[in-house]
């Protein structure tokens, strides 16, 4: 009895979580413009989507900004994590808490304050401001993914590298980087996803020519939700799902040999 209740509960949770998305995906194949009537299966909306220049342009913007912001965030975040790791205890916990703020802070506040800052500094809103804004909220995610990897690392590994003839830079490249690579990769992928996904902060920091995809979708829905948006959302969902699966698979593969070792002990 208890078992059945358990399963039922899980099923309900999943239905609530994923039903809306499946409705959306189903609708993206619906011939009718209406969301309530099913008139037949079609790929038309996908075709239209890929002929819509506004959407394609903003998709391009989104991808470029995500790539640049995630790359810079990964470099900055990794360097910051290593710095934090080597700090003294009190400074370290202080800096880690400061690092959390951009994540905890309301996006609205971050967005507005960034916009005010850019205006005050006379920086025209556009690609540059978007990239800077995205870096601000991506760096913490990289730090939070890299730090645990550093903590898991045997502290003596760096010393061992120096001992065997590495100068500090070689030790970093040949030993530290490979050790924390899983954290760096996860941080990078998370940055990409958050950057692609971000609406609120981008809304305040974008210029007229640098609309990102979420902003374009938002302005399209203000008139009427076009089925093209359904198609686009379906594509985004599938892409994110694939990235997630890759990330999890990667994690699984990394942890497996360690588990074996524990079992052997």
């Amino acid at each position: 009895m208890k078992k059945i209740a358990n399963k039922l509960y899980i099923a309900l949770v999943f239905i609530f979580l994923y039903a809306p998305i499946f409705v959306l995906i189903a609708n993206s194949f619906n011939e009718s413009k209406s969301r309530t009537v099913w008139t037949g299966f079609t790929f038309d909306w996908y075709v239209k989507l890929f002929n819509n220049e506004v959407i394609l342009k903003s998709l391009g913007n989104t991808l470029i900004i995500a790539a640049v912001a995630a790359t810079i965030s990964t470099i900055l975040g990794t360097a910051a994590a290593i710095g934090i790791y080597n700090m003294k205890k009190i400074t370290r916990s202080l800096v880690i808490n400061i690092t959390y703020i951009p994540i905890m802070n309301s996006e609205m506040v971050t967005g507005v304050s960034l916009m005010l800052l850019f205006v005050a500094l006379h920086i025209d809103l556009g690609y540059l401001t978007l990239i800077i804004a995205h870096i601000t909220f991506c760096v913490p995610y990289v730090i939070l993914n890299v730090l645990p990897k550093l903590r898991q690392m045997n502290r003596n590994l760096y010393d061992a590298a120096l001992d065997l003839g590495c100068n500090p830079w070689q030790a970093f490249r040949h030993v530290i980087i490979p050790e924390i690579m899983p954290g760096i990769v996860t941080g990078f992928l998370m940055s990409i996803t958050y950057s692609i996904d971000d609406f609120v902060i981008s809304y305040f920091t974008h210029g007229s020519t640098s609309q990102t995809l979420p902003i374009t979708i938002y302005s399209m829905t203000r008139r009427k939700v076009s089925p093209e948006v359904n198609a686009l959302s379906a594509i985004i969902f599938v892409v994110v799902l694939v990235v997630l699966l890759i990330m999890n698979f990667n994690d699984l593969r990394r942890t497996k040999p360690k588990k074996k070792k524990e079992a052997a002990r």
Partner: peptide, 28 residues
């Protein structure tokens, strides 16, 4: 610095490089 001293160390808990196999560890 350590990398210019004619000494080598066997560390507590070994500190082998987990991302390298036995051969590459020894060849490091």
């Amino acid at each position: 610095p350590p990398y210019k001293r004619p000494v080598n160390t066997v560390f507590q808990k070994y500190a082998l490089f987990p991302h390298l196999n036995v051969y590459e560890n020894v060849a490091f």
